[in-house]
Structure formats: structure tokens, C-alpha cells
Design a protein around this nucleic acid. Sequence first.
DNA 1: CAAAAACTTCAATAGGGATTGAAATCTTTT
DNA 2: AAAAGATTTCAATCCCTATTGAAGTTTTTG
Lengths: 190, 190
Amino acid sequence: MAQAQASTGTQSPLDQAVDQVAHAIGDIMEFWSFKPSMGRVWATLYLSQTSLSAEEICARTGLSSGSVSMTLNELRLWGVVGRDTSSGAGSGRRKKLYRAETDIWAMVTRVFKERELKQVHRTVQALEHATSLIEEARAAGEDSERLAFVSARVARLLELARSGERMLARLADTGELSLGVLRGWMGRKR
Amino acid sequence: MAQAQASTGTQSPLDQAVDQVAHAIGDIMEFWSFKPSMGRVWATLYLSQTSLSAEEICARTGLSSGSVSMTLNELRLWGVVGRDTSSGAGSGRRKKLYRAETDIWAMVTRVFKERELKQVHRTVQALEHATSLIEEARAAGEDSERLAFVSARVARLLELARSGERMLARLADTGELSLGVLRGWMGRKR
DNA sequence: CAAAAACTTCAATAGGGATTGAAATCTTTT
DNA sequence: AAAAGATTTCAATCCCTATTGAAGTTTTTG
């Protein structure tokens, strides 16, 4: 029902299919905190035999030219879209042409490295900072039961966050992940 | 600077530490598309020796009572917060008391199963539907090069999504994950 | 080198979801 | 069983981010 398709009312089943895939990819990208437009644009390119101009992409996705321009650049930044430097086939004016990168493995890796890892690392840093505040309190002579408790739990969180960080890093470049370590380690410890 | 702390202006280093951790957990939860308040509330409980009433949690997080109530229920739904049914120690009126669950492994597993898996499955379904639209086009006699191309690529996406689904499922209950399969498989195939 | 086309940028808008706060409901106490 | 207290619910609000669209810039073409 809610089809923001640019073209005229009715489309062929094939067009519908393409549109649906674009939306599906948009949705999952959004779920992973990317802009939905990134998913839509990438999918549109991925399902096109030929490389497309920004204008074409506008037409097919129904997004504004501004949005397409920004989205395209972002996608290029992520390395999932490339430019096609074919000077040839000059029918219309000279436009830049884009195509989807197809090495999905590289994409996933990249995303893990740059996004998940970065966020987890931020958390590690925050926890480290909290730890130093706790040390400060201890240094200032505080010696309550509460301090001991909080200190222990923050230490535990920090340990966990660091493990997570290591695991993601490993996953990102070896493609192997075992939560076994974590599992045993967190186990039934309170 | 931006400390939405309920209590009075200045806090002890220990309080600051607790507050920071709560915010850090809130941030990473938000990054994973949960409500930040869930992280804040959970962390507040996790760093408290004693179980807390909703009122206490309001005071410590600065969130509204309504928000705390809803957040608490959601957290309980996720199984990461439990109620403490101690009838004892009656100083004030009888309030429900909450404590943080500490089995982080269980939490992670749960989240994977219920959230990531569900979303990936939605994608699989969407792609399956698109596939059936393509079949429809083919059945209707369409036989373009474009159809063949789109069909192949959608099939590829579907294969990928299904692999992802299987892997997540496996990860969720064995804790083991190898992207090796995927890697080799996606490899340099175009 | 001027005009046209393509592309980028950015302030304004739209849209969605988290949070509030107060009314409604349910629970406990006297 | 009434009053006080605690909890839940939900419409209104707030906040944040994605998208727009038009103005500005760069590139291409005659």
C-alpha cells in the first residue's frame, strides 16, 4: 500500500519485485541504524544491469536529488558503491555513473570494523573513566561497602566490554567467533 | 555538562561514576536500537547493592515515573530485570522491588534470538515474496535479459539472507559462529 | 568564455519514536 | 470499605534524524 514509487501508478511484476527488494534492504539497513535511503539506493544499483546516473536513481527510488547525492557519497565512503568511468556511449549529457559493489563480505567486515567496534570502544572508554573516578573516591579515603560493590561491578562490565571488543576485532578480520570464552567466563559468576 | 541527574547539583565521585556508567550503558543500548532508558535503568539496578523501588529509580535516573514503569516492564519482558519478593524490612509502604539479572550471557542470547533473528527473517520473507513476483513475470511469458539478471541477483540476496539467518540461529544457541562459510561462498563470485 | 547541465550543500521541514505527566486503575493499610 | 499509596496507561509533547528543495558551485559543452 505504501509504495513511494516515482514512476506511474502500475508497474510490471518485475518492477514491483525490484521495488520490494529495495524496500526490504532499506528496512534492514535502518534496523542496523543506517539511513534507509542507503539500502534503497544500493539495492537499486545492485539490481540494475547497467550503471546508473544519479538522475536515474532519483527516478527509480523516488528520492530527491539532494538525498541521492548525499546517499551516494556516503555509500561510496563505505566502499559499497563505486563510480563507473565509462566515457563512452554518449547519448545524453555527461553524467557520473554508479554501480553497486558486490563483495558483500568486504561490506560486512567494513561495517563491523568501523561501526560496532567504534561504539564498543567508546563504551570501554566510558567505563575506564568511571573506574578512574572510583579510584579517586578510594584515594580520597572513602571505604564504604557500597564503594567496594560498585567498584567490583564496574570492573566486571569493563572486563565484559573489553572481551566484546576483542571478539569483534577478531571476527572482523578472521571471520571466526566463539562466544564460548565469554559464556564460560560470565557463567554463573554473580 | 549534560547530566540529567535528579539529585542536587554536586555528587560524590562515586555517584558520578555510577551516573556515567548508566549513561554509557544507555548509549550502547541506544546504538543497538533499544531505548536508552532501558540501559540507564538496568545499569542503575546493576550497580545497586540492594533492590530498588520504582520511586528510587526515578530519583536516581531522573526519568519520569511513567517512563520508569514502562521501562521496567520491558526489561522484565526481556528477562534482564527481576522482581524481589521480599516482604520483609517494612519501613515505608509496600512497594515492588526490582533487581538486575546478572547472567549477561542469557541476555545476549535472548536479544539475538528475538530481535536480530526476527528482523533477518522478515528480510528473508520479503525476498521470498519478491522471488515469487519474479516467477510470476516469468510465467507471464516475460523473458528479457533484465529478468534473468534481476532474478539471479535476488536469488543471491536470498541465499545470503538465509545463510545469515542460519548463522544467527546457530550462534544464539551454540555460541559458535564461523563466517568462513559465507566468506568462501560469497568470495569472488559476481 | 558564456550558457547549460550536473552535482553538492544546507537551512527548513517532516516524521517517528522516546519521554512526560496526569488521570485511571489496582493494591495495601487502617 | 474508605483512604492513601503505588502502579499503569496513554494522549500530548519533545527531540532527533532523515529527507527535501532550492540556492550555490562545479563541470561540461558549444
